[in-house]
Amino acid sequence: MDFHFAFLLLQVNLINQGALDAPFSCIPSATKVGLGFKLAPQEGIIAARGSQTLQISFSATMLGRFEEEFRFSVAGSPTPAILTIRGSVTGPSLHFDLPELDFGDISFGFPYTQRCRLTNSSPVPVTFQLRISFDGTQPAVDSVDQIRCHSDPAWRKGVHLYVEPREFTITPSQGTILPQGHQDIQVTLCSNSVMEFYRKMLVDLEGFGKGVASLVITARCLVPKLQVSPHVLQYDECLLKVPYEKKFIIRNPSHLPGCYGLIEQVWHPIHLPLSNIIEELIRGKKGLDVTLLVSIQS
């Protein structure tokens, strides 16, 4: 008999072919496979020429073929009655509808979503949990969140993570699939690593094992090079407290979206006492470039 990795219920009849009532009892099995069987009733009395129906439940704990003997001692009989059960335990059959989940070229910090379907072709329900191989734990930095936070130090120093980022999000990441049923899966990748991805989405089954099925995920994360024109904004002479407006253009010649932020350059000038400047000029020292910063408060 072939069994899937699940609970199974059987019925057998224990027949008394003698002319006297026969008290019987089941001798427990101590093997790993035998411990997965439960018989009820385990003892009783079978009337002469009568029979007793036994309910046998089986919960498999390991894969492969098996052969198990159950012995029933009968009062007054020198030899026990023997019931032999043979079979094979196979794992649940799960498969994805795609050979590979390919994101192609993606942009740093932008989320991308792909979809697939996980089908359970087994005659029993399965409870699953999905995970990505070698994914991190710290939440990845999303470009949209970074744009909303102008004070984010990542604008100046780049994205620095103390642990590996969790770049994949799976929805749903766990659940139960009915026999011959399926579950649509949504996988979102927000990369914080400029690299080529080759990962696997692994399927763990409750009560069975880890990584019983997998789907390869590939992607290539890039950072598009944005272009600024013109490179220098020339304001010439400006009047105090008069606003001046200049425009420049940021271009993205790539096929990927790009995230940018305007960073204010903080300049810390050296304040040289005016008396020292005049003294150096009077002495006639050559080659001294002096910038005098004047701030007039109204």
Score class of each variant (00 low, 15 high):
3 F>Y: 14
3 F>G: 07
5 F>C: 11
9 L>E: 12
9 L>C: 09
13 N>C: 11
13 N>Q: 04
14 L>H: 08
17 Q>F: 04
20 L>M: 02
25 S>I: 09
26 C>A: 10
26 C>Y: 03
27 I>E: 14
29 S>Q: 10
30 A>P: 04
31 T>W: 08
32 K>D: 15
34 G>T: 13
34 G>C: 13
36 G>I: 15
36 G>K: 11
38 K>V: 15
39 L>A: 07
41 P>C: 09
41 P>E: 07
45 I>P: 00
46 I>N: 01
47 A>S: 04
47 A>N: 11
48 A>L: 02
49 R>E: 10
53 T>V: 11
60 A>L: 05
61 T>H: 10
62 M>Y: 02
63 L>K: 06
64 G>N: 05
65 R>P: 07
66 F>Y: 09
71 R>E: 14
73 S>T: 14
74 V>L: 15
75 A>Y: 14
82 I>Y: 05
83 L>H: 01
84 T>L: 07
86 R>S: 15
87 G>D: 11
90 T>V: 14
91 G>Y: 01
97 D>C: 09
99 P>L: 06
101 L>W: 10
102 D>H: 04
103 F>C: 02
103 F>I: 15
104 G>E: 06
106 I>N: 01
106 I>Q: 06
107 S>N: 04
108 F>D: 09
117 R>K: 13
119 T>D: 08
124 V>S: 08
134 F>W: 08
136 G>F: 02
138 Q>S: 12
139 P>S: 10
140 A>F: 10
142 D>M: 13
148 R>M: 10
148 R>C: 08
149 C>N: 03
152 D>S: 03
153 P>Y: 03
156 R>A: 06
158 G>H: 01
158 G>C: 01
159 V>P: 00
159 V>I: 14
164 E>F: 03
165 P>C: 07
166 R>A: 13
166 R>C: 05
171 T>H: 02
177 I>M: 03
178 L>K: 02
180 Q>W: 06
182 H>G: 11
183 Q>W: 05
185 I>N: 00
187 V>L: 03
188 T>L: 03
189 L>C: 12
190 C>G: 01
192 N>C: 08
194 V>Y: 01
197 F>W: 12
199 R>Q: 12
200 K>C: 11
201 M>P: 00
201 M>S: 14
203 V>Q: 06
204 D>K: 04
204 D>E: 09
205 L>H: 07
205 L>C: 07
206 E>L: 02
206 E>P: 07
207 G>W: 04
211 G>S: 12
215 L>V: 10
216 V>F: 00
221 C>S: 15
221 C>N: 13
224 P>L: 07
225 K>S: 08
226 L>Y: 00
227 Q>A: 02
227 Q>W: 03
228 V>D: 03
231 H>S: 13
233 L>M: 09
238 C>F: 00
241 K>F: 13
242 V>F: 14
242 V>R: 13
245 E>H: 10
250 I>E: 04
252 N>D: 08
258 G>H: 04
258 G>I: 08
259 C>L: 00
260 Y>K: 04
264 E>T: 10
265 Q>V: 13
267 W>E: 07
272 L>K: 03
273 P>G: 01
276 N>V: 15
277 I>R: 06
279 E>M: 05
280 E>C: 00
282 I>T: 07
283 R>K: 12
285 K>A: 01
286 K>V: 06
288 L>H: 06
288 L>S: 02
288 L>Q: 06
293 L>D: 05
294 V>F: 15
294 V>S: 09
295 S>C: 13
295 S>P: 05
297 Q>F: 14
298 S>W: 10
